[in-house]
Structure formats: structure tokens, C-alpha cells
Design a protein around this nucleic acid. Structure first.
Lengths: 203, 203
DNA sequence: TAATAATGAGAGTGATTGCTCACTCTCATT
DNA sequence: AATGAGAGTGAGCAATCACTCTCATTATTA
């Protein structure tokens, strides 16, 4: 039956095509016929697998939510928090490696987070399954470091934002200002983590 | 002729209505008849003032770009950078005051930055007239502080991102996770600036 | 007051949209 | 060979869209 991750080959073709088209033209700006063309199937085939156009978007969201690759970015960050040392290059590098995968998904994430605001169930799912888990996962080791007195007692949620937002901001900014800046990604991440750490470490 | 800032009363009514409708439904998700209804004008009237629906969006962008209120947020940040002390409450407070105005504009900014990716001229205008000026305005005093040795020698652009992204991230996050968190906005901004500062100040 | 411009109301247009449905194709089972 | 189930097709439908046109009414200006 050609299934993988609960999706048939045709369904996967359609979803991949939809991601491509939605990313370039936005959800409302895309047409089902474009998606069909990109997927190499008839328009009618789309509606045999997805009840509505919005159903395609929801399936994309489900695919992203069920894909833990995304959450993986928080693991190396947790390492950095626990070691309290950005110099541990190996871990930093793994962040970069992960984030290159994530970076290619930045347009998709932008799409989902933006379009979700028009569809409350989707918004809730994004918040509950992606935003909050990441925040919690990162907050926990921060609180632990605070309890030992190694980190300052700022609000843990704000500390998490301070850590995460610049990394994400850097990736987003890079997408529409390809500031050539003779600096590689690894060095950039290292500096961003450094700035955060030395603002967090007590003394 | 009823002009103010180059816009007649009718044009202003239409633009205000369009901002409201676009913010709620997105650009492609909105219809000109909705905008007309919200503005209390006939649909045909819209097209007497704007050649196309996209023309309305472009006028909104022009209005935002010509409105320096937005850039004002960088002034108090520059103050913080120059003083190197977030405790200077008066200045922090003025950031908050400004940012409350800005915060109400967050949905509009999200709209413009998102929709602009589908319209290259608009994207370029946003980058050249908003993003880059803000970055430059904030980078300059950072570089000055670096030259005196008071700030560490990280890449100035990254330092700017580290400063700006958490503030923006906090505002955006607050919009779809109304984390009641018994913390007022002023305290939040103070802590975010603190975290940044003590990661930037040498020693 | 007369002339001119702006607007409201709303029907109309062609193009496009999301979606349907009658039909075909494939292929395993009978 | 006959059957049935399910995937795929694409012409076409009803609705909607951005946009136009007309014309009576109101507001502005000379």
C-alpha cells in the first residue's frame, strides 16, 4: 500500500508539492491546480486524499509536529546550558549541523506560524506541540543552574527567549538580507551563545 | 481637499479599514468588498483611490515607512547602549511606552514583513527603509563602546541581533501565548536588557 | 447659485477558484 | 473471463473574486 509514516506515495507527493507552492506563494495565494501540477497528479486526485485545501495545510502541520527533528535543536542548547561553556565546540557544531536542517525549514515554519493565526486549532497545536515543549525543555536546565547559584535569577522564561530569539532571528534575517559578512555560521552561533552565557553566568 | 500626510479622508478610511481586515484575514484572504464595508465606503470608491488591491497594501507600507514612530524604538535602546546601564529607569520606561505603541503595531508589521516576501519591491523597501536603518542606528553606538574597550569585540551585527531579537520575540510570543506570568512588561524589558548588557560589558 | 468634483449604491463582467462527479485504469481475487 | 475495489482523471460547476460602469446624490468650490 506504499505507506511511510502513514502517508502513501501519492499523498507524500502532494504534500511535498504543497509545501513548495505554499512557501513561495502563501496559502491563500496558492491554487489547488498549481499544487496538482507541481505534484504531477490530476487536480481531482488531491481531493481524493484531502477533503479540502485547508486539509492539506493541516496535514503539513501534522507532519511537522510528528517530526522530532525540529525539537532536536533544543538538545545541543541544553548541553550548552548545562556546561555553561560555549567553547565546547563539538556541541556547538552539532547545533550548527542541526540548524542547517532547521534553516532549510525556516520558510516552512514561517508559513505555518503565520497561517496558523487564521486557524485557531492549528495555532493551538503549534503552541502546545512545538512552542511550549521547546520552551519547557530549555527552561528546565536553566532553572537547575539557577538553583545552584551558577546562573542569575532572572525569569527563566525571559532567559529562554534571550537564548532562542537571537538564534532564530539570525536565521530569519539571513534569509532576506544575505549579508555576506565574512563570518561563517558556526562562528556566528558561537558568538550569539557567548553573549547570552556571559550575561547569564553569575560573576 | 482634506489632505493629511498626503492622504484624503476617504483614503485614510480605506487604509485604516484595510489594515484591520488584512491583519485579521491576511492579504489574499481579504476581499475588497470586506474592506469597503469596514471603511463604510462603496467598493467602487476603493478603486477610485487605489488602482489595485495590491496598491492598498503598498500604500500601507508607504505610510508605515514614512512614519518615524517606528524607528523611535531604537532611540531609547541607543541610550541604554551608551549608558551601559539598564538601571536608568527613565529610559527603560520610555522604551516600554514606545513599545506599547509598537506592540499594537506588531500584527501590522508581521503582515507587512510576511506579505512582502511575495512582492520583491515591497521587500526591498522594508529592508532598506526599516530593517537596515534600525540595525545601523543600533550598531553605531555599540561599535563606539567597543572602541573604548567597554564592550567586548563580538561582531557588532550579532550584538545588535542579540539585543533586538529577544525584545521583538517577547512581544510576538506574548501575542499568541498570553502567558499571564505575574510580571509586568516594564520588568520584562528590564531583565532582557540586563541579560544582554552583562553579556556585553567587558568584565 | 451654478458648476464641478466626489461619493454611494449596486448591477455587471470576465476570470479564477475550490471542489465534484462520472468515468477509466489497474490489478488481485474469483 | 468476470468481478470488485480503489486510485486516478479531467471536464465542468457553482461560487467568488478583483475590478468596471452607470447614475443619482451629495459635498465643495467659484
Amino acid at each position: 500500500m506504499d505507506k511511510a509514516l502513514g502517508l502513501t506515495k501519492t499523498q507524500k507527493k502532494i504534500i511535498d508539492a504543497a509545501i513548495k507552492v505554499f512557501s513561495v506563494k502563501g496559502f491563500e495565494g496558492s491554487t489547488t491546480s498549481e499544487i496538482a501540477q507541481e505534484a504531477g497528479v490530476a487536480e481531482g486526485t488531491i481531493f481524493r486524499h484531502f477533503s479540502t485545501k485547508k486539509g492539506i495545510l493541516q496535514s503539513i502541520l501534522l507532519q511537522v509536529v510528528d517530526n522530532y527533528q525540529l525539537l532536536d535543536i533544543s538538545d545541543p542548547l541544553v548541553e550548552v546550558i548545562e556546561r555553561g561553556d560555549s567553547q565546547s565546540q563539538s556541541k556547538v557544531s552539532s547545533i550548527i549541523t542541526q540548524s542547517q536542517e532547521v534553516m532549510q525549514q525556516v520558510p516552512l515554519l514561517k508559513l505555518l506560524f503565520y497561517e496558523a493565526q487564521f486557524h485557531p486549532e492549528m495555532q493551538q497545536m503549534l503552541v502546545e506541540r512545538i512552542t511550549k515543549p521547546i520552551l519547557e525543555q530549555i527552561k528546565e536546565p536553566i532553572v537547575k543552574q539557577q538553583s545552584t547559584g551558577y546562573y542569575r535569577n532572572y525569569n527563566a522564561c525571559l532567559m529562554t527567549i534571550s537564548l532562542f530569539a537571537p538564534l532564530l532571528g539570525y536565521l530569519v534575517l539571513k534569509q532576506f538580507i544575505p549579508e555576506q559578512e565574512n563570518m561563517d555560521e558556526e562562528e556566528a552561533f558561537k558568538q550569539l551563545l557567548d553573549i547570552w552565557l556571559y550575561g547569564v553566568i553569575n560573576q
